[in-house]
Simulated assay, not measured.
Amino acid sequence: MLMQNNYDYIIIGAGCAGLSLAYRLLNKSHTVCIIESSDDINKRNKLWSFWDTYETPFNHLIKKKWKNLLISNENESIKINCEDYNYQSISSLDFNNFILDKINTSSNIDILFSLEVKKIVKKNSDVVVITDKDEYFCSHVFDSRPNNKKTFMKQQFFGAYIKSKEDIFDDNLAAFMEFTTIKNKFHFNYILPFSKNMALIESTFFSCNEEKKLLNKEYINEYMREKYGDKAYIIEKTEFGSIPMDIGINSLSEQFITKIGSFSGATRASTGYTFINIQRQVDHLIKIIPNIQKNKINTHFHKFILRKMDSIFLRIISRNPDYMKNALMDLFRTSSHKAQIRFLSDMPSIFDIMKIIFYLPKLKFLLYALGIREKNDK
């Protein structure tokens, strides 16, 4: 513990991005301070899920892996083979505690809680981070705070951790998207079984409107009754989340501030997947950090064509959600699962993108790409 006011780097926010970057800087020659506004980051305990498409230093924290996923609607179920890219989950609680333990014994990193950053200013050769209690000096800031920009659409979800008395879940098969018949809503259930009697069941909307009234325990209980009848179970805990899905986030760094995390463009706009993009982002930053002030760094990893496709997906979801559900079912039924996974993970090759485009409804997507809506769309 350094407990000083002058550092080489300051990281604002002890979320996934801030802690991931701090982990790469552990016991290096740089002095680092993490400034966090909350008093306990584990109040925000979440489950992060992703495909094994990129090597990270956190494989030992993986809670569960699945080799098969299911996408379905009321008429059909499609199994997705994930043997080459396992679908897996990490608890933010395990992630946070692992890195906090490392920080507490490190020689070069401080973490300060319950400090609200008011302003960041350049003063001579220093960058000054002004908080509600003190001022801290550094040469560069990595900022993971959200901005105040209103996002076009959000992924909103309510999840319940279910523990059943009997073995009712298939723990080798996760339900990736179980589309429902809620009219004019892009809604699906998402089920991750950790064992035969323990699972996370989430109700998820992609929506431009607030859907909190439809995200509650009552929906989960009704789902359990319809799916499993009178089988006894308890809800051990619940979680609610809202992920901004915006292709227009400006992630360009200023001369002395680099944005990191979700609000730097690390969240894939059309899917909400973030964890792997954050790991790619901070690995890239570590490579160029010695010369970071000499570069105006774009930390947005989405290529132009992916951002364009995300924009089209989100516009169709907002105006014709039922059509988009059917289009995705067609896509998963016909195209390569490996290409789909790389595409959803934001790591496709140009050939993967071509395969995805080939199996999409080209006329509809072309009309949206040109800004032309069909008559039956909102």
Rank of each mutant, 00 (worst) to 15 (best):
E55S: 10
G15Q: 06
H30C: 01
F58I: 06
D8G: 05
C16K: 10
I35K: 02
S38P: 01
H60P: 08
D8W: 11
S29N: 15
D39T: 09
E55T: 14
L47M: 15
H60S: 11
L21E: 07
C16W: 08
C16N: 15
T53R: 01
I10V: 10
K43H: 13
L19F: 03
S29V: 09
T53H: 07
K28I: 02
A14L: 01
T56E: 04
L19H: 05
I11P: 00
K46Q: 14
W51Q: 04
G18C: 00
S38F: 02
I41G: 03
D8M: 05
E55N: 13
W51F: 08
F58V: 10
E55Q: 09
R44M: 12
G15H: 01
W48I: 05
E55D: 07
S29H: 06
C33H: 00
S49I: 12
S38T: 15
F58A: 06
L47K: 15
I10D: 03
C33I: 01
F50P: 03
F58H: 13
D52A: 11
I10Q: 13
H30S: 08
N59M: 11
E36L: 10
I35R: 00
W51M: 01
W51S: 01
I41A: 07
W51E: 00
F50M: 04
A14Q: 05
L19C: 01
S20P: 09
I12M: 07
V32L: 05
T56Y: 01
I12D: 00
S38Y: 00
R44H: 14
W48P: 14
N27D: 15
S38D: 09
N59W: 04
I35W: 02
V32S: 01
A22S: 12
L21D: 12
P57N: 08
E55Y: 10
L26G: 02
N42C: 13
N59L: 05
G13V: 05
